[in-house]
Simulated assay, not measured.
Amino acid sequence: MNIVGQNTTSDPEAFYESLKEKLEQTHNFPEDYLFKFIITNNQSKLTEIYRVFDGIKYTLTNRDSKNGKYTAASFNAFVLDANQVIKIYKEVGSIEGVMML
């Protein structure tokens, strides 16, 4: 898992607990939440991310990098609470080669 801006040597559970607190302070759930990911231009990786969002109402925007090596995927998803946001990040984080913004 690679979260841009995160110190990768820190405890992931502590990171997610801190993120949950920040989400609860700054968002009024339920609401739309924007998830952004960067992956190598590989349709199977994007399909794996789609599976994480099964059963969730979302809109998707994809954009390929200038050289076509990477794809930026933005999911604007309706989430119920901070726990659901964390669950999605953890599931996408288990997919190899995905950078989360």
Rank of each mutant, 00 (worst) to 15 (best):
N2H: 15
I3Q: 04
V4A: 11
G5K: 06
G5Q: 07
Q6F: 12
Q6T: 12
Q6W: 13
N7S: 10
N7V: 09
T8E: 14
T8H: 12
T9F: 04
T9A: 03
S10F: 00
D11Y: 06
D11R: 00
D11F: 00
P12M: 01
P12R: 09
E13M: 09
E13D: 14
A14D: 14
F15E: 13
Y16S: 02
Y16R: 09
E17T: 09
E17L: 07
S18R: 10
K20G: 00
E21K: 13
K22D: 15
K22Q: 15
L23E: 09
E24T: 00
T26K: 10
T26Q: 12
H27A: 01
N28K: 11
F29S: 05
F29W: 03
F29I: 08
P30R: 03
P30G: 00
E31F: 04
E31N: 05
E31T: 07
E31P: 07
D32V: 04
Y33S: 08
Y33T: 06
Y33D: 11
L34S: 14
L34K: 14
F35V: 11
F35Y: 13
K36Q: 13
K36I: 06
K36V: 10
F37G: 07
I38F: 08
I38T: 14
I38Y: 07
I38H: 03
I38D: 03
I38R: 01
T40H: 03
T40R: 03
T40C: 05
N42H: 02
Q43V: 12
S44C: 04
S44H: 05
S44L: 08
S44E: 15
S44N: 14
K45F: 10
K45T: 15
L46W: 00
L46E: 14
L46R: 12
T47P: 04
E48K: 06
E48D: 15
Y50C: 10
F53H: 07
F53K: 06
D54P: 03
D54W: 04
G55Y: 11
I56K: 05
I56T: 06
Y58L: 07
Y58F: 08
T59L: 09
T59D: 13
L60C: 01
L60K: 14
T61M: 09
T61A: 12
N62P: 10
N62E: 15
D64F: 10
K66A: 14
N67K: 11
K69G: 11
K69V: 01
Y70F: 15
Y70T: 15
A72P: 01
A72Q: 15
A73P: 04
S74I: 08
F75D: 12
N76D: 13
A77Q: 06
F78I: 02
V79M: 05
V79P: 00
L80V: 10
L80P: 00
L80M: 03
D81Y: 01
D81Q: 01
A82T: 02
N83K: 07
Q84P: 03
I86A: 05
I86N: 07
K87W: 05
K87V: 02
Y89M: 09
E91P: 00
E91H: 07
E91K: 05
V92K: 06
G93S: 13
S94Y: 01
S94K: 14
I95Q: 03
E96S: 00
E96C: 00
E96L: 02
G97F: 07
G97M: 13
G97I: 12
G97Y: 11
L101Q: 12
L101M: 10
